[in-house]
Write a protein that binds this DNA or RNA. Structure first.
Length: 616
DNA sequence: TACCGACAGTGGGGTCGCAAT
DNA sequence: ATTGCGACCC
DNA sequence: CACTATCGGTA
């Protein structure tokens, strides 16, 4: 006998499985010796059947037998009294012939919704995958059509009628959910499991145990694949537009890919996403997980770092400074100006193709900058002059300057660096040079002083346009540091950077320290805002204070950083304990927008004075 | 045991691109 | 031309 | 950017 390979018999339209025409055609085309089983063979089911049908003498009715071997296998197992029905004449004829050596078996052409048997004439009725075929309605198994309900009810009613009192209906279903629902279901369950455990090791173990979810997890946590639309936007859109539950997507990942690649934007994105939601998210569980996936926020205490350990993916990490630390002067330290610009990592690859070098600029988080053509041209020129062989990375800050060229203008830099057009007058202030392989590894072997020498030799003695080396001062005494601090304030610098003379490390480290002057001031809390936050200990969401609103020189400023979780909870429950009360806010400086509006840069709460007592 | 680095998750001001209005 | 949102700089 | 809180390994 030949087992049919499903490929050549799978219909283009899956709803065909419920039609008589499809099966008749299929059985006609196939060799009469072909067998086909949707799922599970007799060997799988034997223990179950033996338990459910203890008597070999039982009178058995097989609904929609098709060319399955189930009937024959049962016969060979001792169940002789089997009546097989199917609504395809072809298959019944074929089967009669095939089982000519099994005289006790009956083969009848019949519709399962209209049985021609007397009431109470069978001990056992078996349906294996037949109702599944009946239910092959495209899309929505949770909102079936009238017709489907009628068909299913027809079968069940008939079974009930022909079964003896106390008889058995054995119903085998593949229970297959639409693929997208199964995807959501898997992730949702994994998510609740992972959220429940606190230990990061246990979280990792659980994630490792669900390989089915890995492809989706990988794309959700990939920081370079953004969805460009949020749950909030879709929900809002659905309130003002009618969306039908007939999604053309059957794979969650495909929808997300189309959102990421901007194949879907604007209303089309809302339409497709909303439709997917209505089609597949029928339970609260599935709805929740869908929004979380869309927002790339699974809320289970796992983020990119943990996912990367399990499912390695390309990510860039750079050296970052700690905000303050005690440092031992016996170690060699270098001091330099802290520049108020935008971090820029330049990757320089010496391509084999003669004259051209590959030069790419990246932000601190690995997004590439396209606006630094002027810097690129000058690096290119320098590379020509030197004919350097190895690949390396320049690390520095892209700055824009005020008209007098005395101060960095951060907002001006922001307005130009991340655009597609060329930046007018970028000044790339370089403070480090790392060999590419070491940068990629996030760990090097050259000391900072050695890297500085290489940087100097690359940049040369005469100054290049648009590129400068940041001046480093070797620190010899604490008095010198105080002097430098004073100098920094006089010059109006953002602050100072302290560097230990150590090997490169692509992470936040205390070998690199930033020193800034902060301003403390008191304000009256005008109002508060509340929202949901995930409690780090339990993983539950609670209503808490998210931020307070104050007024600085008549302009509104929000402050949200600095509160402990407990005080957030307390103030959300008792707003009167903070509204109208004075608070201490620490900030870096005032900020001025083009329209003259004033605000505060990096504001944080330091103290709350509720009726004389201080608390945060 | 007490400390500390790595992670996750929360908040601020401000700018751009993009699509809708 | 303006508005609102998402993403991403600090 | 600043900040809080937790886990898990190390001093």
């Amino acid at each position: 006998m030949v087992a049919s390979t499903s490929l050549n018999v799978v219909p283009e339209d899956p709803t065909a499985y419920k039609t008589q025409e499809y099966w008749e055609e299929r059985y006609k085309k196939e060799d009469s010796n072909t067998t086909f089983d949707w799922f599970k063979t007799y060997a799988d089911l034997k223990p179950l059947l033996n338990e459910a049908i203890p008597s070999k003498e039982a009178k058995i009715l097989m609904l929609g037998c098709g060319n399955s071997t189930l009937g024959e296998d049962m016969y060979n197992d001792g169940y002789k009294n089997i009546t097989n029905i199917d609504y395809s004449k072809t298959v019944i004829d074929n089967m009669k012939e095939r089982c000519a050596d099994k005289p006790e078996m009956n083969w009848l052409e019949m519709d399962i919704r209209d049985l021609k048997f007397a009431n109470e004439s069978f001990d056992v009725v078996i349906d294996k995958g037949t109702m599944d075929a009946l239910m092959c309605d495209r899309g929505d198994v949770w909102d079936p059509s009238e017709e489907l309900i009628k068909d299913v009810k027809g079968e069940v009613d008939e079974v009930e009628r022909v079964l003896k009192v106390g008889g058995t209906f054995l119903f085998f279903s593949s229970g297959k959910l639409p693929y997208a629902v199964a995807q959501l279901d898997r992730i949702s369950k994994l998510c609740t499991d992972v959220n429940r455990v606190q230990s990061t090791l246990k979280k990792q173990a659980l994630l490792a145990q669900s390989p089915d979810c890995h492809s989706t997890l990988k794309r959700i946590y990939n920081p370079h694949l953004r969805h460009h639309v949020s749950a909030k936007t879709i929900l809002k859109y659905m309130q003002t537009h009618t969306i039908t539950a007939n999604s053309s997507y059957d794979d969650l990942n495909k929808l997300l890919d189309d959102l990421s690649s901007r194949s879907l934007t604007g209303h089309a994105a809302c339409e497709a996403t909303g439709s997917f939601y209505l089609t597949y998210c029928k339970t609260e569980e599935h709805q929740n997980i869908f929004w979380r996936i869309l927002d790339k926020n699974l809320k289970m205490g796992v983020s990119i770092k943990t996912i990367c350990r399990l499912l390695p993916m390309e990510s860039m990490s750079v050296a970052l400074a700690a905000s303050s630390a005690s440092f031992n002067l016996s170690d060699p330290w270098y001091v330099s100006q802290k520049l108020d610009g935008i971090r820029c990592i330049t990757v320089i690859r010496q391509s084999n193709a003669k004259e051209q070098h590959d030069i790419q600029f990246y932000s601190r988080t690995g997004r590439s900058f396209q606006s630094l053509q002027k810097v690129k041209t000058n690096i290119q020129k320098r590379l020509h002059e030197l004919s350097i062989k190895d690949d390396f990375v320049l690390d520095g800050e892209v700055c824009a300057y005020s008209s007098d060229m005395k101060h960095e203008d951060f907002l001006k830099a922001m307005g130009q660096v991340r655009r597609y057009e060329e930046m007018e007058n970028p000044i790339y202030q370089v403070f480090d040079r790392i060999r590419l392989d070491q940068f990629m590894q996030g760990k090097g072997d050259q000391l900072f002083s050695q890297r500085q020498k290489e940087l100097e030799s690359f940049l040369g003695t005469e100054s290049l346009p648009h590129i400068k080396k940041v001046a480093q001062t070797r620190l010899t005494s604490l008095e010198q540091l105080d002097q430098l601090k004073k100098h920094s304030i006089e010059k109006g610098w953002e602050g100072l950077m302290l560097r230990k003379d150590v090997a490169y490390e692509g992470k936040r480290t205390r070998d690199l320290i930033k020193l800034k002057e902060w301003v403390d001031a008191e304000y009256i809390v005008k109002s508060i805002e509340t929202g949901l936050m995930r409690m780090p200990d339990t993983g539950e969401n609670k209503l808490v204070l998210t931020n307070v609103n104050i007024e600085h020189k008549g302009y509104p400023v929000g402050v949200g950083s600095g509160f402990s979780m407990q005080s957030r909870i307390d103030y959300a429950q008792n707003p009167e304990r903070i509204i109208g009360k004075p608070i201490t806010v620490r900030y870096f400086s005032e900020s001025k927008k083009e329209n003259g509006a004033i605000s505060l840069r990096f504001p944080t709460v330091k103290a709350v004075f509720e009726d004389g007592e201080r608390d945060v």
